[in-house]
């Protein structure tokens, strides 16, 4: 849920406030939840409206995606969440496999949460170079996770 909200709220300073509002909205709406239906799609449906309302009320920039895309994103999150949970199990190990500048860039970007420009600054490299390093990191992580998933399936 937090990933869903964070992906849709551009200004990171607003993300936690919006997430808080979404949490309240989901809890308040819980009486209308039908337990025979999957929880996540229902909650995400509440969340996308609550997040948009929250930003509007705070007079902030609207959600990063247009309404139709937000709906498609919510459906996709509900669809892939379980599989991604399994993939996330391997993420830490794969991050440990990175070495040198790739690992440092990854730590700065995804653990410290620095934006690419700040990663470049911290590493003393050009922003374009940092973007390429991060792109390569993502590819390496994806390949590593796929490899581990395949190995796990064989075991």
């Amino acid at each position: 849920m937090s990933a869903f909200v964070h992906a849709l709220v551009a200004d990171r300073a607003d993300r936690d406030d919006v997430l808080q509002d979404v949490a309240v909205a989901v809890v308040e709406a819980y009486g209308s939840y039908d337990p025979s239906r999957p929880f996540l799609p229902w909650a995400l449906g509440i969340a996308r409206h609550a997040a948009a309302d929250s930003l509007r009320r705070r007079r902030r920039q609207p959600l990063s995606l247009a309404p139709e895309a937000t709906e498609a994103f919510a459906s996709a999150v509900a669809e892939v969440a379980d599989a991604e949970r399994a993939r996330l199990v391997h993420l830490n190990g794969c991050m440990q496999e990175l070495d040198g500048r790739a690992r440092e860039a990854c730590e700065l970007r995804y653990r410290a949460g620095l934006r690419p420009a700040r990663v470049a600054e911290a590493l003393g490299i050009q922003p374009n170079t940092a973007s390429k390093v991060l792109q390569r990191v993502r590819e390496q992580l994806r390949e590593c996770i796929e490899r581990r998933m395949r190995a796990e399936a064989r075991a």
Binding site: A3, A7, R15, V24, V27, F73, A81, E84
Partner: peptide
Amino acid sequence: QARAFARLALMYVGKRGSTASPSI
């Protein structure tokens, strides 16, 4: 593409965490 967006959001945003988590 929606699934691609969802996967990246879940993997990278979820990994990063939040600065102040909701108490609910």
